[in-house]
Amino acid sequence: MYRILKKTYLTPTVVRMEIAAPLAARNALAGQFVILRADEEGERIPLTIADHDAERGTVTVIFQVVGGATMALEAKREGDFVATLAGPLGMPTPVEGLKKVAVVGGGVGCAIALPVVKRLFELGAETTSIVGFRTAELAILEQEFLRYSSRFFLTTDDGSKGERGNVCAPLSRLLAAGERFDAVFAVGPLVMMKYVAETTRPYAVKTIASMDPIMIDGTGMCGCCRVTVDGKMKFACVDGPDFDAHQVDFDEAIARLKTYEPIEARARERHCNLYRAASQQAPARTKREEE
């Protein structure tokens, strides 16, 4: 059992939780994830470590409320416990030796992009952050990105904040203007990462995508997180989650993510009804963002 120390809403559907988990906090590095389970009967889900404090023994996760498992997690309050938190899992993001880097985050993926930016900044790299959201209300972590970025670009699909369009536009401009990055990190929806990869491909810039497939154990046992990279089968949980974006089969990954879609829709319904009945005093939060 792991106690939730702090819970805040970044948007009505994006939640940040700081959880006491000394074992996972001890050796965590940017890019690694934890497997978390809200309740004893809950589903095991992977969540990237958004921040951690080894001394206090805490791990911070940021998640979007999209399905049954995240709804169950969101229903928890400060002082409540989650049943499982195991980690840190996966390989850390390879940041050593990089001098000039662009980090591209999309939607709630920005929560995962931020610790990478922070780590690069601490290592003295020149960091360009490009973050994109559907609309102004969904924009998160702007101040944090500004703090750790040499340059910062924000886009929204509808133009309600920052530049109108998607993250590939500023990236494309920078590359066309002759910017030469040691690496570009893409963290966000699969479609976004796919287009970031296509944007950088002509410039042969090393581009790394942070994959977030379905997982159960997170230790290499189930194989449901398998990703095709350069024609070879890789397990995101132990070989990743970061892979060469120019080699990842994104179309396959997009299809695989939908494996349980019909079942998950039913789970969402169940949770909605359940929590509507159970939590009159909780803040309004049943509105959910469709990606």
Partner: peptide, 8 residues
């Protein structure tokens, strides 16, 4: 929840 080789 203790992943030896990862947690420690």
């Amino acid at each position: 929840d203790a992943v030896v080789g990862k947690s420690f």
